[in-house]
Every structure is written in C-alpha cells, then in structure tokens.
Design a protein around this nucleic acid. Structure first.
Lengths: 359, 359
DNA sequence: TAGGGTCTGTAAACCGGTTTGCTAAACCGC
DNA sequence: GCGGTTTAGCAAACCGGTTTACAGACCCTA
C-alpha cells in the first residue's frame, strides 16, 4: 500500500516544521538566507519525512533540465549494437558528465522522431547522422533548442562536427592502388532513408573519396561492384556474399565501416580465401577491435570518441551562452596500415589489368 | 537575437486565436471536445507561431515523464566503452522504445550518484551492477520510485534480474579440467568499490563457481593466480602481464569477461605463445566479437541483451501497475566451446601435475 | 413550454517547486 | 531613543501546462 502513498511535497515539510514553503526551499537552495538553526531543523525534518524535491517542478521554474539529448534517426536497439556508437557515446558522456549534465537518448518513438523530440526534456541536442533537410531538424531549430549536428551533410548554416570522410576514403583507395590492385569492390553503408546516406552525407562523401581516387588511377567501380548493407558484421557478410554470388572476384575490398569489414573478413574466409594474400581489405572507423581481428585490420582511423567530445563542447558553449553560434568543425582522419592489405596476388595481376574500364 | 526571444507559450496561442488556454490544450490533447473548425484553427495558429507544448510543464501535471532511467555506478564514459554494455543497452532500448519510453542514463554526477538521481526525471529505474547495500538504492526505494536491479547481489527483497553466473563459471572450469588442465589462472573483474564486486555480487559469484569446481577436482587457485583488473581489453592485458611478471605460467586462463579474455589473448601472443596450443583461454559474456577473434573465443554465454529486455519488462509492469512487486528472475548461462581451448600441452603435463596444492 | 441532453467553450484550481517584494524584529552607533 | 541596516521569515506571484466544474446555446422530446 505504501507504494501509493502520496509523495511528500514541500508543503508537507513546511507544515511539519511550522514554517513557510519559502523557508524549506531556502533551506535547500539558499541556506544562508535562514538562521542556521532553522535551516538544519528543516533539513532534518525533510530527511525524516523522506522528502526529495521534485526534479520536474524544479526544472519548470529554473528553465533548465540539466540533461543533453542524443538524437538518432534509427532505433536505439539497433544503434547500441554498433560498437562505433559506444565510442561516440563515451565521448559524449565524458564531457557531459564533467559539466554535470545527464544524457537522454532520443530515438523515433513509434516511428516518429518528431513525437520523441517533443517529449524530451533536454537543454540541447546532439544529432548524429541526420541530414539538414530532415524535417525534425527544422522543428528543433524553430523551437530554439540548441543543437549540434554530427556527421550530417551540412557545412555551414548550422553548428556541426564531422570528420574528413572524403579524405580518409581517398587514403584508403590510394593505399590499395599503390599495392597494385585494380579490381576493387566497395562495401557501402545502407543507412535508413534521409539519414546521412543522402547526397552530401557520410556515405556519399566516402564513396566520392573512393571513386575519385580510383578514377584518377583509371579504375572505374561500376555500380555492381558496390554492395550496400547495414553497418554491421552481418551486413558485411551479406554484402560480400552478394558480390560473390554475382560472380565478382575483386582483389581488394574497401568497406565503409570496420563492422562491415569484419563481416567481409569472415565471409572471405568462409570461401576459403586468405586475407591479405588473396584479397586485401580496408575498413573505416578504426574501432578498437580492428586491432584484434586476424589479420589486424588496415583501416581509416576517425576520432569517433573525439567527435562526441567536440560536439558536446560546442553544445555546452551555446547552452551556456558562451558562443551563441559556433560554426562547423571537421576532424582529421588517417590511414592505419595493419595486416589486412597486401600486394595483388600474382596470378590475378594480368586478368585484373585487362579488365576494361567501363565508361 | 531571436535566440533569446521568449518561448511561445500556450497563452500566446490562446490570445492570438482569441480562445482560452483550455481550448488550446484541448486542441492538442482532446480535440473531440472542441468544434473541429475551432480545433484546426487553433492548431494552425499554434503551428504558425511555432508553438510546442513544454514537455516539462506537461510532466508536472501528468505526473509521468515517459522515460526510464538506467543507473550505473561508474561513469558513463567508461561504461559505454564496454561492448557488454552496448548489448545490454540495446535490450533495454528495444522494449523501452516499443512501449513508448525514452532512455535516460544516470551516472555519478561529479562523483555523487545520489545527486544524479535527484536530478533525473524518470518513471522508473533499471540499476545495473549496484549492490543492495548501496545507499543510493535505499534512497530510491524510499522515494517510491519503481526499480529493477540487474546483476546485483540480491535474491529477493527487491525486484531483480540476473544470470546464473556461478553455474556458468562452473561450466568454464569443468571444461578446462576435462581438457586436463591443472594449472589454472583467473582474471577477475575489478569493479569500483561497492559495486557488484562485493560479497554476493557478480564477481564473487563467478569466482565461487570457478573455485568450487576447480577445488572439487583438487585444484586450488592461490590468490596470486587471480589477477584483477578493469573489464576491458587493456585491463585484460595488464592482468595477464602481472601474472606473467610474477612468474606464473598457467596452462589455462579463465577470464571473467570477454573483454579481458581478448586482452589476455593479445598479451599471450605478445609473449610468443599460441592459443590454444600452449595456453587455453575461456571468456565470459559471449559478446559478438568473441566469434571474430583468432582463435574464436571459448566462452560462457550469458543473455546480455535478454537481461536488459527482461529488466525493462519487469519495470514497466510495475510502472504501469500491472504487477506492483515482481520477484527475482535468473536467466541461464551456457558454455560455448570455440577455438581458444584445447588439451594441456604435453611438455607441461608433468610439471603441472606435480604442482602442490597449497592448503 | 418546461425539462433534459449534447455541444462548445471558459474560469479557476492545481501540479510542486522557486523567487520577488515586503514586513517585523533585532541590532547598531551615536 | 532615534534613524538606518541586517536578519529571519512570509505571502503571493510565477513557471507552463492540464483538468475540473460550470455555463450558455441549441436541440429534442413530452
């Protein structure tokens, strides 16, 4: 029964202590305004009654929630399964906690991000992987809620953080070219519609980087050498299997994420091939376990955690009024050569070289 | 400047539409109470003004927040780095989202969990890895906030979910014994004080499982064969290195987490030894990447995601009043034999067998 | 034509705190 | 013993919504 006992409120404490609500409030937030004897008596009574100021009521008057929101276009149940997101969240959490903020994850509520946003009580938002044309973005901006976009397709217009995806992809492509590969397949991430897979999004930027550099070396990657799938190990397996089933036998595979690369690694091995002797493989992201695979994964490093940290730093600077309109911040990527890439297998060389470049 | 424009409130909409606040409220929440023409006119004006009902004010009257809290004893920045937590969160998020709830992560605010709890606006809490004697637990219970404890040291007393850690540990130990190992080291998790590393906590339960089964086979694991460290890859490396530096040369290592096992794997390899030929290794948790290591990790599977799901299910049943006091729920663990375990290396057999059992 | 039901809409109380004047008493120096 | 300053505490307004109780208009029935 006591579960349904009415919550003890500030009025209860005031009454029992024989003082006004004001006094109780002061005892908690501004004890100097009270006689120290009175203050501690109030505190004692409050404690005895099990009084805990209602955080919601407090938020209402103070006009701040003490929490920052993390906005994701996909359901959290899928997002959290991605190790990339773990690092990113760790970055976010690190500086948020340091500044005394809690973390509230906002994801499509019954399919509607908009509904979810309306219900969320946060002082500001870090939006990950949403494009600027996402309708929800506009709602937030109109509502005047501070927001930083991460890995979006935006450059200016709005405060944002991303990494040099295109440059990273170029490094990956240049690397396999230098090793002599000319038959290259791409494993692309298939984000949900109107996520950053759109025009200027992450996927497009990486794809552009790959293609430009390959193209400059005279290598064209036709559409059927680009397999798309979700950025997971399973997605990587699937994508590679589709390529394989389609008869493609590339000597190098550029994966847009380490998760996919690891999936590809498994699929490749399942077909009895070895990496890097027969196929070279380059990932993207440099998640921690990229070092633990066999062979360790050559990949493009991006400062995932740093992205989260920087985003929250920017966000706090606007929430706390230090810098009302921060700009765009782009962090560097770099190639980490480990063991999953090597020279083209000899017997494939001439076949590959003979492959016609389709217009 | 427009950033500081006062938020548009329900009163603004009411005035502009020439109706009462009540009407505006109805237009949003109970449109049937209004003439449909009026309702849509109000909605139009609200939209034009960019009005968005303040979620905090709404919470205050409705006495519900639409969010559930995830309570962790450690800082989120370290928690999120743990892949185990990713799966767990995914489980939590899955059923929470399904039911229309958001997720709020609560961690020690400037070192004080208590402060963090007081500020958090949630309808209920899933506490992971806290022991029942944790003072914060009592605060929550006194406040009448619904709570489910996961991986705690509690059995009844409070609603909780955990897995059969002891049974799992027994399976792991029995497995290496069966393979002939008699010189076994343990890599134990070092949680922060008064986390579930205490008496009846997860760490203690697993340790008990290991020791009992080993002991029954006449194998004693002295304290200096138990290396403790944080449940991370780095922690696993460190722990193993300390063992090694101390001159220990076990033929089998039982790690309390896959993360530590993976660290150990790297450390072992760094010393030029091979797994499982020279050292057998058993993990715990069965995180996804346990399949991708080289060799794939033999480990104790626990339904991490299922734990999160079950916890939220129980929590919702109390929040929504279906079952005011759910009991304790224990999920099964099982051994997954992969490639990291094998028979004792021959040349070690007699040395090992000769090892005296210290009382 | 009185009486009873819908339909629309409103005023005011309420949720549980914080904050802003304001008052009354105590204290102060001279 | 008087003006001036602290000190201690209170009543009431406020934050931005929701909800209850009520009222007027309109319609129908007996």
């Amino acid at each position: 029964m006591e579960h349904f006992a009415r919550r003890v409120t500030i009025a209860d404490v005031a009454e029992k202590a024989g003082v006004s609500k004001t006094a109780v409030s002061f005892a908690f937030n501004n004890p100097d305004r009270l006689n120290s004897t009175t203050a501690s008596r109030i505190l004692d009574i409050a404690n005895e009654l099990g009084y805990r100021p209602d955080p919601v009521a407090r938020m209402l008057t103070q006009r701040r929630t003490g929490a920052i929101g993390v906005l994701t276009p996909q359901e959290l149940s899928v997002i959290f399964a991605n190790p990339f997101f773990g690092s990113f969240s760790a970055g976010i959490a690190g500086v948020a906690e340091e500044a005394g903020y809690g973390l509230h994850f906002i994801s499509p509520l019954h399919g509607s991000l908009s509904r979810a946003i309306h219900r969320a009580t946060v002082d500001g938002v870090v939006a990950i992987g949403l494009t600027i044309d996402h309708p929800e973005i506009n709602e937030i901006r109109r509502a005047g809620l501070p927001m930083i976009m991460v890995d979006s397709d935006v450059v200016d217009e709005v405060a944002s953080v991303d990494v040099d995806d295109e440059g990273g992809a170029r490094l990956a492509a240049a690397h396999v070219i230098e090793l002599g590969h000319r038959d290259v397949a791409i494993l692309a991430i298939d984000g949900p519609r109107s996520t950053s897979s759109g025009e200027g999004g992450v996927v497009a930027r990486r794809l552009r980087g790959y293609r430009e550099t390959l193209g400059a070396a005279g290598i064209d990657v036709p559409a059927d050498e680009v397999a798309i799938g979700p950025s997971t190990i399973a997605g990587g397996i699937d994508a590679f299997e589709r390529l394989w089933a389609g008869g493609r036998r590339p000597t190098a595979v550029l994966a847009m994420s380490d998760a996919m690369a690891i999936g590809a690694l498994r699929a490749i091995r399942a077909h009895g091939l070895t990496v890097p002797a027969e196929i070279s493989l380059v990932g993207f992201d440099d998640i921690e376990l990229a070092q633990s695979t066999d062979p360790p994964l050559t990949t493009v490093h991006q400062p995932v955690r740093g992205k989260g940290e920087e985003a929250v730093r920017l966000l706090l600077s606007v929430i706390e009024g230090r810098d009302p309109r921060p700009g765009h911040r782009r962090l560097d990527t770099r190639l980490i050569v480990r063991g999953s890439t090597g020279p083209v297998p000899p017997r494939r060389q001439e076949v590959t070289a003979a492959r016609p470049k389709s217009a």
